[in-house]
Nucleic acid binder design. Structure first.
Length: 207
DNA sequence: CGCCAGATTGACT
DNA sequence: GTCAATCTGGCGG
């Protein structure tokens, strides 16, 4: 489960995020999110993502205008972390879009990989299936907070990055509508690894 | 500066 | 299924 491909240890380059967010969301599945916390590698395989677009997406923070830091960040540098607080949780996104639009990919769930003991002590849960199976839960498990906002994840220098993880074949990828969004688009923009036990369980009505 | 909706979670009826 | 907890950004006053 925690097998790494050759080339692991290096962050995925910036150009990876310079594309349609939905495409980035799909290809992020199977990659590894790494956080160095007090000298220890905490990591997990990304098993669930969602794509958000720019001002034409009613669920986007950039909907109707680019006022505010979040909206501007969505249209800013790709490969930057976008950390957003909701309901007392931190949500981790990575800015991803082509040249002429804004967008980001929300990391919704991880399969814990390295640093299980530390993550267990942080969260109080030793059940790896419950450790990071939700957008607010993974940020807690990896100690990700607002301090990572607008920090690039294509270098290892800030202690949070995404590197090559494991291969996921297209047949393992399933999709649905986004979760928890009041105004969704007709298209299905949530992607997950079908059958993986670490995919978030609760809200999704469509599966 | 106060108000409120929101990309959530976990505990309880 | 329902609900409260209690945080941040955006907006109106």
């Amino acid at each position: 489960m925690c097998r790494s491909l050759s080339g692991a240890g290096n962050a995925i380059g910036k150009d990876f995020y310079h594309r349609d967010p939905a495409m980035v969301a799909i290809e992020l599945l199977g990659q590894k999110l790494v956080r160095v916390y007090k000298g220890t590698r905490l990591s997990g395989i990304i098993v669930e993502t969602e794509a958000y677009y720019g001002k034409w997406d009613p669920a986007s923070r950039a909907y109707k205008g680019l006022k505010g830091d979040l909206a501007r960040t969505l249209y800013g540098e790709v490969g930057y972390a976008l950390v957003y607080g909701v309901h007392r949780q931190w949500l981790l996104n990575v800015v991803a879009h082509p040249d002429n639009d804004g967008g980001a990919v929300l990391i919704r769930a991880l399969e814990p990989c390295e640093g299980l003991e530390v993550m267990t002590s942080i969260t109080g849960t030793s059940n790896i299936y419950l450790l990071a199976n939700g957008p607010g839960k993974l940020t807690r498990a990896l100690m990700v907070n607002k301090s990572f906002h607008k920090k690039p994840v294509y270098t290892t220098e800030h202690g949070l990055w995404i590197e090559e993880g494991m291969r996921v074949s297209p047949s393992e990828i399933a999709r649905s509508n986004r979760v928890g969004v009041s105004k969704d688009l007709p298209q299905e923009l949530r992607f997950y690894i079908n059958g993986n036990p670490c995919v978030s369980k609760r809200r999704p009505l469509t599966n």
